[in-house]
Design a protein around this nucleic acid. Structure first.
Lengths: 243, 243
DNA sequence: CCGCCACAGATTGTCGACACTTTTATAGAT
DNA sequence: ATCTATAAAAGTGTCGACAATCTGTGGCGG
């Protein structure tokens, strides 16, 4: 039987805590909640491999929970598109496809572009300070380990996460930070994409924050879209090489 | 006790059936499925009023189902953001706010703009024929009842629905057609927005399809974004008048 | 040898019951 | 009369069990 975590790691990668929806300090969480969080981590990090079948009785035994609670967790996972369920057949972890990854990039380009525009239009002193601080942290990290870019994936994640938060559009925030980004992380973990674009990406981040600071929504959106599209092209090239 | 529908009306408004995700002909549906579909309609159409509390035992009795099945339906509704659930407290239908509506417009502008671009880039002969036929149908309807624009909301819905389908991006299709559009419909039904932009909207639709036909993704995206933003501005103006 | 059908095993969908929490109602004190 | 504290009622979270369905194995016929 596997112990399930009480305090699961939050979705934001940086040190400063950022509230992601559902109010402040919802310390009350049900068993189904905890099962959901635990399973989400296991799937995202590939400890439950993509494409594998999920057996309700087996998982229920493993966590020493009833099938009801487990099923609720599974339904939540389904709504994140981390698993797929078919009536009277069961659940499977989604499998990661090249097409699926590219589709995510297109959606991110659209949504994060808009988020960036909104962040620039509604920019608050608070957000700007945080964004600048984050950029400095990343710069230090980059100085520390030139080229290797080990922490870059999480740093990149952090960047995108914070921009979206600054958009001040709850629907956008929820769609990206609470839903789509888990699948993004799943691809990152399992296709292990250590970006060779580390240096360039950092400069792009910097320019994007400049545009936000200047309140230039149009430019901020264009730059963010380019930034994401560059990543997409990079991935696409790499994937086509492997075949 | 209320009878629950076996064959619930599909989300697309037009005559030609369009498969929305989850494979072809999933005639097998569980009780929870049917409860979900029925409740979704009732919430979207306002028969369960927004903001009202949802009692699990009461609804279970009303549909003569167990709480388990009902709860599964509720969780699905939650993933559509049609209801909100809090631990140990219960579920409430979301309430419709001006801010929420405007947020939806921003997200739609981003996503449908991208969908339109993709539709133009991957345009298939099939999609083009369907889009043209749809436009003709709408034109006839408009001729029939000049200005009144009774069917326009559904026609408009039909238009956006089909463009998204033509994007050929499953994530985009799912996000918009299977998730966000239900909330859009909810706002339409309950804030009853009979667009006074009927004629203009029709011309805009026409130009958008021209751009798609020409394979001009960039223009198609720009036009779609303008189209949605015009709607947004229209709503925003109307809402600020009412105060 | 391949394909079809029946049966057994396992899994999922659904149900009713119980424990714990929140909410409401009641009574008492300031 | 308002507020607080206690008790009753209702509601939610979780559990185990049963019925319906699917999967896989084996045998039969072509």
């Amino acid at each position: 039987m596997t112990e399930i975590a009480q305090d699961n790691s939050p979705p934001n990668a940086s040190d400063n805590p950022v509230d992601v929806g559902q109010g402040i300090h919802t310390s009350k969480q049900s068993l189904a909640d905890r099962l959901f969080l635990t399973l989400r981590s296991e799937i995202v990090e590939g400890r439950i491999s993509s494409g594998s079948k999920i057996s309700e009785p087996e998982l229920a035994r493993r966590f020493d929970a009833s099938r009801s609670s487990l099923r609720e967790a599974l339904m939540r996972l389904e709504s994140l598109s981390l698993i797929e369920r078919r009536v009277n057949v069961g659940a499977r972890v989604v499998d990661l496809t090249e097409r699926g990854l590219l589709e995510i990039y297109d959606v991110r380009e659209a949504l994060e572009g808009m988020a960036c525009r909104l962040a620039a239009e509604n920019r608050s002193e608070e957000d700007l300070v945080e964004l600048r601080q984050m950029l400095e942290r990343h710069e230090q990290q980059e100085e520390l380990q030139k080229g290797t870019a080990y922490f870059q994936p999480e740093g990149d994640f952090d960047f995108h996460f914070r921009i979206v938060q600054a958009s001040n559009n709850d629907l956008l925030i929820d769609t990206l930070c609470n839903k789509l980004y888990y699948r993004v992380r799943m691809y990152r973990y399992q296709l292990g994409m250590a970006s060779p674009r580390a240096h360039r990406a950092f400069r792009e981040h910097s320019h994007i924050i400049d545009a936000i600071e200047a309140g230039d929504g149009e430019l901020a959106e264009i730059l963010m879209r380019r930034h994401i599209r560059a990543s997409r092209n990079n991935i696409e090239k790499k994937l086509s090489q492997d075949d």
